[in-house]
Design a protein around this nucleic acid. Sequence first.
DNA 1: TATTGTTATACTCTATAACTATA
DNA 2: TATAGTTATAGAGTATAACAATA
Lengths: 143, 143
Amino acid sequence: MPGPTSPPIGLHLSRVARTVARAFDAALGEVGGSTPVWLILISLKTHRLGTQQELADAIGIRGATLTHHLNSMEGDGLVRRRRDPGNRRVQQVELTDVGEKAFRRMRGAAATFDQRLRQGLTEAETAALAGLLDRLAANIVGD
Amino acid sequence: MPGPTSPPIGLHLSRVARTVARAFDAALGEVGGSTPVWLILISLKTHRLGTQQELADAIGIRGATLTHHLNSMEGDGLVRRRRDPGNRRVQQVELTDVGEKAFRRMRGAAATFDQRLRQGLTEAETAALAGLLDRLAANIVGD
DNA sequence: TATTGTTATACTCTATAACTATA
DNA sequence: TATAGTTATAGAGTATAACAATA
């Protein structure tokens, strides 16, 4: 017996995520960032990725969309692209010094935001939330 | 003592929400809907809203953005707008029969999606997730 | 003057399709 | 031919600013 139906968790998640995403984007904006740029910077810093396609997949966008962002990031001096001498089809994306500084600024803003976001939540509660979110995601990607 | 730092919950939420939001939008798309249209239809059905501004606020968009959506929804025959005779500045937005049917289709798609999303979660876990999400949202809107 | 909503315009993020360069 | 990435173009969703109509 499933019991009384709860309000749709999808709608609930969607509303909260919207609110949080906007506030987060505003927080990044205050240090000159944005969500996609932040996701790209994090990926560049944490993984050592081979191709741009892998980078795009890691973020969940198309290759052409990544090119678009990298173009503007390169225009802003955050990254540098160089052809791999061993395979000149491949572009190697590197952070410049300016990019490193931008990364640190955004990391700071993200950390401050996260503290605010998890105010009043214990470590256990945060972990429980993370686990539940993972299970939702698994239900989506799984089938 | 805060203990070992967990990975940022904001980033985690953002990634899961992205994945879920895209899949949800695709599910709505299969019945001719989209997220903003769905949010507008739900608001029209559940609250009895006075002005468009209240509707926009309920959804979290600007008045001009709502006008944009209502224009296309009216073009598709989903809604009808009529000036309030008592205050002709106010537009009263009503669902047409076509809009009612579209609402039911989207509601069905949303319910199916939600079942899939909460697969394997007990009622208690879903409620716990909803509660935690509310607390995150409160941390954002609160200050 | 203040309120309600619309119009005009533009920005961001995303995508697909066609293309270039390289393998 | 296949692969890596770019260019060209477009569409969805959002926003701000200026405006019209009404109060």
